[in-house]
Design a protein around this nucleic acid. Structure first.
Length: 607
RNA sequence: GGUGGCGUAGCCAAGUGGUUAGGCAACGGAUUGCAAAUCCGUCAUAUGUGGGUUCGAAUCCCAUCGCCACCUCCA
């Protein structure tokens, strides 16, 4: 097994990954999650999927990953910046515009986000993990922890309270501020682009606690006003002596939430912290400053004793940042019409994007909708260290790639069968076993090389190509299927249900010669009085096929129905009545069943 | 203005001194009643431009053009 290497933003170098856990098993990972004031867009999801990919690669390396991704539902201002905190809270602004309570708005968009995340197969929202609030902490529910941290900062003299009762971080106390982003802090022109807060000691100081009477989400640090009962009980426990009396009722700064929540749910020092590249400065820089100021968190580098002499004043050992997604090589822009939420692409017509739907239809997307697995593939298909230029072309290519994998997967599944064939338990050829183990290893190698997905996909398609050239027995198919499933543990783009089948020529000729065809016809529910065999043939021969008009919709297409039409079609083919045969195939296709003639028989695929 | 990054065939995208990664598209062939799928082949000895170092450069150096990001809300 190759060794996982990651590009650490902090050191700007490729580092071998080693967890902090002495047993070398457990890995802690924190991702800055969405601010839930609107729909998440595909750029957000590219970033979150990078974290999902990293997590899956860690699991492939047999680590047990505890992945926390927060929900920001308070404190993120419209004009947040390094020097001052002007502007309105993003959530509050959106809530005001919709005439909603900000808590309601946050939960609304959080719920929608979770729906989207599930569709994109983000593992931290699949299964039991989705239900674990500790893995998806909400900022507004962690005000006790944030105030405790703020109090620590004041006690340690890394923060100060101004006349109005607000709290600021004192940048000058932390010389390492700027180490993550590589910024020379003196170069940040003090106050030139932002209004200097009157009460700040240095214009670059950032706020930890803000006082604003107009703000709807408020907490009183010295009483029960604004508190959820359970949170307040925890607060009293966490800060029994109370916080600095000068702090006035208000709300927390954006940066402080991640320091507090990652510590609460993952511990003092964590292994990996991820986010989008825009988070590097100032958000993550501020998180580092806060955690160090309050708890003196520091890490020695991953390379062992040599680093003991120069610990980094960071609470995360590896910082991993994804580059942004662009459209037409520019940032997404609503005014330029290049802004896409996930929903816009999955279901444009339901989201008032008729033009987009038409464009997608032109590109061959059925009903103008992009399947979620195709979007997932597109968003993870290049390396996270490169900006991604999103386009319809990219989506089309992703669709073709996913289809190629799906077709191979389906055929392998058919070859393995339902497990009743005793040959499945046989021994696969050495050649096949070698192919499988090499592909699996190369796939690891590519992913472990800083998540090099293009190389990993080259391995996948190389293996598919080789498999396509081989005649596979059941035992070989079984091994090959395992390989595909192993790839898909990371990619997660395949439909793994039994969605295809093969009807042999022998089966069809049996049906044609027996009453079983009529039985299949009678199976169709809409025939109150099913035709007998003779009537059925009359209909077929007359090319009437009236059953097509009101055939059951796709969800009700089952094996019997498909088999009936395959038999009828085969009869027409034998009679060289290709118009009827092709008509049946086209009709089935419209109902979501692809039919293929192969030397072995007739293959059907749902989808 | 400061800092960082990128320019690889029609498109996407690896490769960071030495045997034309891979995918998509298009076209030709095999197969097929027609399709679909699959295979073989073509596009392809491609690397923004101009120099330099080297036996050898997409890869290193210099210059130059173009694009992007962060520094200001952002994933």
């Amino acid at each position: 097994m190759s060794v996982l290497k990651l590009k650490n933003t902090y050191t700007k170098s490729l580092e071998t990954f080693q967890p902090l856990d002495p047993s070398g098993k457990r890995v802690t990972m924190y991702t800055c999650g969405p601010t839930v004031y609107s729909y998440a867009h595909i750029g957000n999801f590219r970033s979150f999927l990078m974290s999902d990919l990293l997590r899956r690669v860690l699991e492939r390396n047999e680590y047990e990953v505890r992945h926390v991704m927060n929900i920001t539902d308070v404190g993120h201002l419209t004009e947040d910046d390094v020097a001052d905190a002007q502007g309105e809270d993003k959530l509050q602004k959106a809530a005001r515009e919709m005439g909603w309570d900000p808590y309601k708005l946050a939960r609304h968009y959080e719920d929608l986000f979770v729906e989207d995340a599930k569709k994109l197969r983000m593992k931290n929202y699949i299964g039991g993990e989705a239900e674990d609030p500790a893995l998806h902490p909400r900022a507004a529910s962690h005000v006790p922890e944030m105030l405790a941290l703020i109090q620590k900062l004041i006690e340690n003299e890394y923060a100060y309270v101004d006349d109005s009762g607000q709290v600021y971080y004192d940048i000058n106390k932390f010389p390492d501020y700027g180490k993550l982003s590589g910024k020379v802090i003196d170069d940040l022109e003090a106050g030139s682009r932002v209004a200097v807060g009157e009460h700040k000691r240095d214009p670059r100081d950032f706020y930890l606690w803000k006082v604003d009477a107009k703000h709807l989400m408020q907490w009183d640090p010295h009483g029960e006003n604004g508190w959820d009962a359970a949170d307040y009980a925890r607060y009293v426990e966490l800060v029994p002596e109370g916080v600095d009396p000068r702090i006035k009722p208000g709300f927390p700064g954006w940066h402080v939430e991640c320091s507090a929540m990652s510590r609460t749910h993952l511990g003092h020092v964590i292994d990996i912290h991820t986010g989008g590249e825009d988070n590097i400065f100032p958000h993550h820089e501020c998180e580092i400053a806060q955690s160090y100021g309050a708890y003196k968190t520091q890490v020695v580098g991953p390379h062992g004793a040599a680093d003991q002499d120069s610990p980094r004043h960071s609470f995360a050992r590896y910082w991993v940042h994804g580059r942004h997604l662009l459209v037409n090589n520019k940032k997404m822009s609503k005014s330029a019409g290049t802004f896409y939420t996930l929903r816009d692409l999955l279901d444009p017509r339901d989201n008032d994007r008729e033009e987009l739907a038409v464009e997608l239809e032109k590109s061959g997307f059925k009903d103008g909708r992009v399947p979620a697995n195709v979007l997932r593939y597109a968003l993870i298909s290049n390396q996270y260290t490169q900006p991604m230029n999103f386009s319809l072309d990219l989506l089309q290519q992703a669709r073709a790639s996913v289809e190629r994998l799906q077709i191979r997967y389906d055929k392998l599944r058919e070859a393995v069968g339902d497990g009743t064939n005793p040959d499945v338990d046989g021994t696969a050829s050495d050649k096949l076993l070698e192919l499988v183990s090499k592909a699996d290893e190369d796939f690891d190698g590519a992913l472990n090389d800083n998540l090099n997905m293009p190389n990993a996909l080259a391995v996948v398609f190389g293996a598919v190509n080789q498999l396509n050239q081989m005649e596979l027995g059941p035992a070989e198919a079984r091994e090959a299927l395992r390989l595909m499933e192993s790839f898909d543990e990371v990619l997660d783009v395949l439909d793994r249900s039994a969605r295809s089948g093969l009807i042999t020529r022998e089966q069809v000729s049996t049906w044609l010669d027996s009453e079983s065809l009529v039985k299949k016809a009678q199976h169709l529910k809409h025939w109150a009085e099913a035709p007998d065999r003779e009537q059925l043939w009359e209909m077929v021969e007359a090319g009437q096929l009236p059953m097509f008009e009101d055939l059951a919709p796709i969800e009700q297409m089952d094996a019997d129905t498909i088999e009936l039409f395959v038999a009828i079609r085969q009869n027409a083919r034998k009679a060289k009545d290709f118009a009827v045969a092709d008509g049946i195939r086209d009709d089935l296709a419209r109902r979501g069943v692809q039919l293929e003639d192969t030397p072995q028989g007739f293959r059907w695929v749902l989808g």
